[in-house]
């Protein structure tokens, strides 16, 4: 009988260890997709807020949102015609994003920016800088970079900016407690 109990305890310990290993971490995984000013503001506020709450943050920038990470002062070399056209049409950096609603040829976006200043809401540029200081991890979708024709040398100097694929996002999301697609 004691042997049986010992075996059962060992079995339970093994199961607990496995459960602990599969437990999601105190981590949030955010997909930044839209590239709209309002939505990216929300994403960055949540990301920085999460760091204040001691939560690890993994952001995955893909599709339209990758344009937000372009540095307006830099240019990419060796682009073909299509890439050049895309590069010209897409916003060059976070300050060029537009509202998803009420843009009204840019008037709405300008009005929002005035309001944000008045109400002391941090700009997207400020939030990006804060995120870098707080250790918000930003990963960029390599495929989106390629598709939009963005070159690495034209991207922001963000600490530890990494270029990854969907597998990395999934691995991060798999171990995160919170998942957002913005």
């Amino acid at each position: 009988m004691p042997n049986e109990i010992e075996a059962q305890v060992a079995e339970l310990e093994k199961k607990i260890k496995l459960l602990q290993k599969n437990q999601p971490k105190d981590q949030i995984s955010i997909i930044a997709f839209s590239g709209d000013l309002d939505k990216m503001l929300a994403a960055m506020i949540i990301a920085t807020g999460a760091r204040a709450m001691d939560t690890e943050v993994k952001m995955f920038f893909t599709f339209w949102a990758t344009a937000m990470l372009r540095d307006p002062k830099k240019t990419g070399k060796g682009k073909d015609l299509m890439s050049k056209m895309f590069g010209f049409m897409l916003p060059k950096g976070s300050s060029k994003l537009k509202l998803s609603k009420m843009n009204m040829c840019g008037m709405g976006t300008s009005m929002l920016k005035v309001l944000m200043k008045k109400k002391r809401v941090s700009s997207l540029e400020e939030l990006l800088a804060i995120a870098g200081e707080l250790g918000v991890e930003i990963n960029v979708c390599e495929m989106s970079m390629d598709l939009m024709g963005f070159k690495r040398e034209e991207m922001l100097d963000y600490p530890n900016l990494k270029y990854v694929g969907v597998g990395s996002y999934l691995a991060d999301a798999d171990e995160s407690r919170i998942q957002l697609f913005i």
């Binding site: 920085t48 807020g49 002391r120």
Partner: peptide, 13 residues
């Protein structure tokens, strides 16, 4: 007092 959300939380942290 000079910041809106998430400013105070970040300042506290």
């Amino acid at each position: 007092r000079g910041t809106a959300c998430p400013g105070p939380l970040l300042a506290a942290k």
